[in-house]
């Protein structure tokens, strides 16, 4: 099962990463959810023992590792929190940029960078030239 878990978690991580890189911002949020699922699965898979649920009265055989379960629970909630924030952020960006693409945001950035730079470029380059 080791390999199966690793494969599944790796595949989810890769799929999530691919989604995060898409230009559609809402898909980016989905990507983060998938990645967080990958992380939770990994935490669960990293348990040191598999068996019955760790609830008293304990059965005599093997018991599942409760610590990794507790970690998985915490990480699920944290994943939920981050996703919520990211989703709202994306909604705001969509609202402000009137676009759902990371590309448009990037183009905007390039344009702003250029205007910002142009303000000072001449004076600055002259200053640099003076030091030569």
């Amino acid at each position: 099962m080791t390999l199966i878990y690793a494969l599944a978690a790796g595949a989810l991580f890769g799929i999530g990463a691919y989604l995060v890189m898409r230009r559609d911002l809402l898909r980016v949020v989905l990507g983060v959810v998938v990645i967080s699922q990958a992380a939770t699965l990994t935490l669960m898979a990293s348990a040191l023992g598999f068996g019955a649920a760790p609830i008293y009265p304990l059965p005599s055989g093997a018991i599942s590792d409760p610590l990794s379960q507790a970690m998985a629970l915490t990480s699920v909630v944290i994943g939920l929190a981050t996703t919520a924030l990211l989703l709202v952020l994306v909604l705001r960006v969509v609202d402000v940029f009137r676009s759902q693409g990371l590309d448009e945001v990037a183009e905007d950035e390039v344009a702003q960078e250029a205007t910002l730079d142009a303000e000072h470029a001449l004076g600055h380059e002259d200053e640099e030239a003076a030091a030569r």
Binding site: T2, A9, G10
Partner: peptide
């Protein structure tokens, strides 16, 4: 796609490497 595949493979290798090793001592669990 290429970047996603790289990321996935990286994650897979890391996870597999970790899961393949058993702890040297009994867990705190």
């Amino acid at each position: 796609l290429a970047a996603g595949v790289i990321a996935g493979i990286g994650a897979f290798i890391t996870i597999w490497a970790a899961l393949s090793r058993e702890p040297s001592q009994r867990g705190d669990a």
